[in-house]
Design a protein around this nucleic acid. Structure first.
Lengths: 236, 236
DNA sequence: TGTATTCACATTGTATACAAATTGGTCAAC
DNA sequence: GTTGACCAATTTGTATACAATGTGAATACA
């Protein structure tokens, strides 16, 4: 799925992914070719190929004669997200517990160390990216390319959503972060033990925690029955 | 997910997909750029972009400085396939029953008509492609982009596998084809009725039928306990 | 005879130039 | 004042030429 391990091209590919995941590039924003060419020191031909790749991976949306945009997140995607996430996450973690190799388990532990460190520093971006990395490793452990396709797309949006709600984590809410981290630790144990039922269960608990945070963010207390019109939609 | 509705480029994109799904292009076979350029009347730049797209969609695998190959199917992928298929198919059909529009239901009926027709003619390719089309429509009905990513990849391989076992359908085995078709009909009813439980159930039954055919093909009767070595694997 | 090195060829990767399409703005007409 | 057409400027799409990498055959050497 990674494009190639070329040089400047890979840098562009990876950095665009990072920028999209961290909301540095906002959903729906235009990606102009010449700007990106200068930024990454590529000519348009290879840069366009990077954009095609990112499109296939779900990071970017292409429109004929109208260039590339960062894939946007509507409330439709949020609804889809809520439906797909528990299904895929639990399946992935079950398979991870079945199939993880020792090397991968070490990778996962390292990722968790990095996440814990990012938790301590207040760096929102680092939290989101290290968390993203943790879950992508569980995906690789599962080693199922079909499910991986869904996981990849879920994580794009999960990480982007996380960038907004990790930001508001203060005081009492840090308990949630600690809980999330503790769940990661338990996942590692379950995977090491090959305890697939426990791993799947943890995936669902972890998702439930995340879901509650998202719901809190989407629907803050006190605004549960908002008056007035729903946000206006573009008609297709 | 479709690239654009350009002209020659779209033709190349769609035709390559078709050729890959029908095994006209064999798994693992090389896709040389100049050959494809002549075939589709494109220069290398847009053709390469098509290959990048197909790579993102899972039809094609790219290697740095070594070009593109048709994604191959090992028995690893077959194992992954058996794990992921029931999960995704049932989820997709459940959502399809929830969300299908009337227009989509008409499309699905048309696809089923085409499938039935292909069943009568002995045309293996037509069977595989119309069946593929039927299931992709259910995916669009479900309208969940996350799960769609997995479904797309499952259907690539399911259709390719189908190309081999549809071929051996004769005499008594036609019963299986009729049953598959009848299941399609029942799916349409369940979707029209919004009966999501029934739709999900049918997805599993349909999968079970398909799985049995695949198992028969992979492990023909009389070879259930083969002697000697398992097929040799390429390490890594 | 077997192995290693070299060189020519073929194929992929990149840059640039050119063609086509879209966008935004101006001006005229209603 | 609003609508519409037209034109310039920007941006995307395509072709071609060139650079770099990989492949394989022939040859030299052990």
């Amino acid at each position: 799925m990674p494009p190639q391990r070329g040089t400047a091209k890979t840098v562009a590919y990876e950095d665009l992914k990072r920028a999209i995941l961290t909301l540095e590039r906002k959903p729906g924003s235009a990606l102009e070719e010449t700007e990106l060419c200068e930024l990454y020191g590529l000519s348009r031909t290879p840069l366009r190929e990077v954009l095609q790749q990112l499109s296939g991976d779900g990071y970017v949306t292409l429109q004929l004669n109208r260039g590339a945009r960062v894939s946007d997140m509507t409330h439709f995607t949020l609804r889809d997200f809520f439906l797909a996430a528990p299904l895929i996450y639990s399946a992935i973690l079950r398979l991870a517990a079945q199939n993880a190799t020792l090397v991968q388990i070490d990778e996962l532990k390292a990722a968790q160390d990095a996440f814990r460190e990012a938790m301590d520093t207040g760096d929102v971006t680092a939290r989101a990216l290290t968390n993203d990395r943790f879950h992508r490793i569980t995906g690789r452990m599962a080693g199922n390319s079909y499910l991986m396709a869904s996981l990849d797309r879920l994580l794009i949006d999960h990480t982007r959503i996380g960038m907004t709600f990790f930001r508001q984590t203060r005081g009492a809410k840090d308990e949630r972060l600690k809980l999330a981290s503790a769940q990661h630790d338990e996942m590692i144990v379950a995977i090491e033990d090959g305890d697939e039922d426990r791993a799947a269960e943890l995936a669902l608990e972890h998702w439930a925690l995340s879901r509650d945070q998202i719901e809190l963010f989407v629907m803050p207390p006190g605004l549960e029955a908002p008056l007035g019109q729903p946000p206006k939609l573009k008609s297709a």
